[in-house]
């Protein structure tokens, strides 16, 4: 069970494969559910070329670990990986990854969905967008629809 906050570009699919191999999950899991968040080049009907993700380092680390522990209590998970970028990000780059492994599909699917919603609503990260007319703090997340 791992939560990482990183400043560099990463490939979510390589991260999943690497973690799965390192965790020695082979032959134990029957389901892997993943969520990959990628930066769009638009938001609220405006072009967005880049953004800066600020966070509250101590609380973010604490909160992500807490989320994973709660998910483990709610569902029979074999493993969880969360990776979230901070710092400068440009469009098409991966912002975050959540991967959940379980013996059967329902646990990993439900846990992955719960983790992304909890993270988006409670984890202390903030986006500042770079638009043609300057920089702007994002005031709230989209409803995801």
């Amino acid at each position: 069970m791992t939560a990482q906050i990183i400043k560099h570009i990463f490939d979510p699919w390589q991260a999943i494969a690497k973690h799965q191999e390192a965790a020695n999950l082979s032959q134990k899991f029957g389901a892997t559910a993943t969520f990959v968040g990628t930066m769009r080049d638009f938001n609220d009907n405006a072009d967005v070329s880049a953004m800066t993700l600020e966070h509250y380092p101590a609380m973010t680390a604490h909160y992500l670990e807490k989320l994973i522990e709660e998910a483990k209590i709610k569902w029979p998970l074999l493993d969880v990986l969360i990776i979230h970028r901070v710092g400068e990000i440009t469009s098409s780059e991966t912002i975050m990854l959540i991967a959940c492994w379980s013996a059967h599909r329902r646990a990993s699917l439900d846990a992955c969905n719960w983790l992304i919603e909890e993270l988006k609503h409670r984890a202390p990260f903030w986006k500042k967008e770079t638009r043609p007319d300057g920089e702007r703090w994002v005031e709230k997340n989209t409803d995801g629809l």
Binding site: A58, L119, K120, A123, P124, W126, K127, W137, V138, N141
Partner: peptide, 12 residues
């Protein structure tokens, strides 16, 4: 104690 104030979060 450490007290922090911040706006609604927008990560993910």
């Amino acid at each position: 104690d450490e007290v922090a104030f911040f706006p609604p979060v927008t990560g993910g």
